[in-house]
């Protein structure tokens, strides 16, 4: 597996995201309704979109893994979910801050998007206990992929259900995200979204590279020490943790 990314990606991320945030504060006009507080929108919404898209990407990767049986796709699916969960934490915290500023409460149960996101987040959090509850590596990978596919199907369904549960016409403070967004805000939003997407991809590659180098290190250690120790067969069980057990 060669995860050596094109060197340009991290820099592109830095430039785009910085430019996006600069646009937020120096270019985008203040929202007529909400004023300055609406600036959280450019952080919160791209984060949420990237996290959700990341979950869907993980589902697709899991499907590829199940169909082809190549475990590198399981690793990718795992890392996609992992990074999306990290972004998800940021989504929930920034969402809570926005809710506090707009409505005076840290969490608002009748804002469907926020509630759906919380449910999806909770579901994906169970991915870790599931993985570590299964000993056999090959089975673990397969079951984790089944989970990723199921959860991927769950994401849109959950959003439908929660949105429908919204009673009548809730005064939507997020109305700015509808068609009424002025062009300057649109540009800012799109740049932020692109930056966040690039950030997601950068972090995923970073994480993949870290995991793969740790695995390589473990292999190297086994190759080097194996000569001294000389028992190949008996080490099979702990081999799976070879990269970490010796540290």
């Amino acid at each position: 597996m060669n995860f050596r990314s094109p060197r340009i990606l991290p820099w592109l991320t830095v430039v785009t995201l910085t430019a996006g945030f600069a646009l937020v504060f120096f270019f985008a006009p203040n929202d007529a309704d909400q004023g300055f507080i609406q600036k959280i929108f450019y952080l919160h919404v791209p984060l949420a979109i990237c996290a959700l898209v990341g979950f869907m990407v993980a589902a697709v990767q899991a499907i590829i893994h199940l169909r082809g049986g190549d475990s590198k796709w399981d690793v990718r699916s795992y890392v996609s979910i992992h990074i999306s969960i990290i972004l998800g934490v940021a989504v929930l915290i920034t969402g809570a801050i926005w809710a506090r500023a707009s409505w005076g409460k840290w969490f608002v149960w009748d804002e469907p998007t926020l509630v759906s996101f919380l449910i999806v987040f909770l579901l994906y959090c169970t991915y870790y206990p599931l993985r570590y509850a299964i000993e056999d590596r090959e089975r673990q990978a397969r079951y984790a992929s089944v989970f990723a596919v199921t959860a991927g199907a769950f994401v849109p369904l959950n959003f439908i259900a929660v949105r429908l549960a919204e009673t009548l016409v809730h005064p939507r403070v997020f109305a700015t995200s509808d068609s009424g967004l002025p062009p300057k805000m649109w540009i800012t939003f799109l740049v932020c979204l692109a930056g966040m997407g690039l950030l997601w991809e950068t972090l995923v590659r970073f994480e993949l590279a870290a995991k793969s180098s740790r695995a390589r290190l473990g292999r190297l250690r086994r190759a080097l020490e194996g000569d001294d120790v000389g028992v190949a067969g008996s080490r099979i069980a702990p081999l799976a943790h070879g990269a970490t057990e010796t540290s």
Binding site: I119, N158, V162
Partner: peptide
């Protein structure tokens, strides 16, 4: 391993809709 724990843990969020 912890199957009595894993099943409800996975089920509850999935059953929210």
């Amino acid at each position: 391993r912890a199957r009595d724990l894993i099943a409800p843990l996975l089920l509850l969020p999935l059953l929210v809709p």
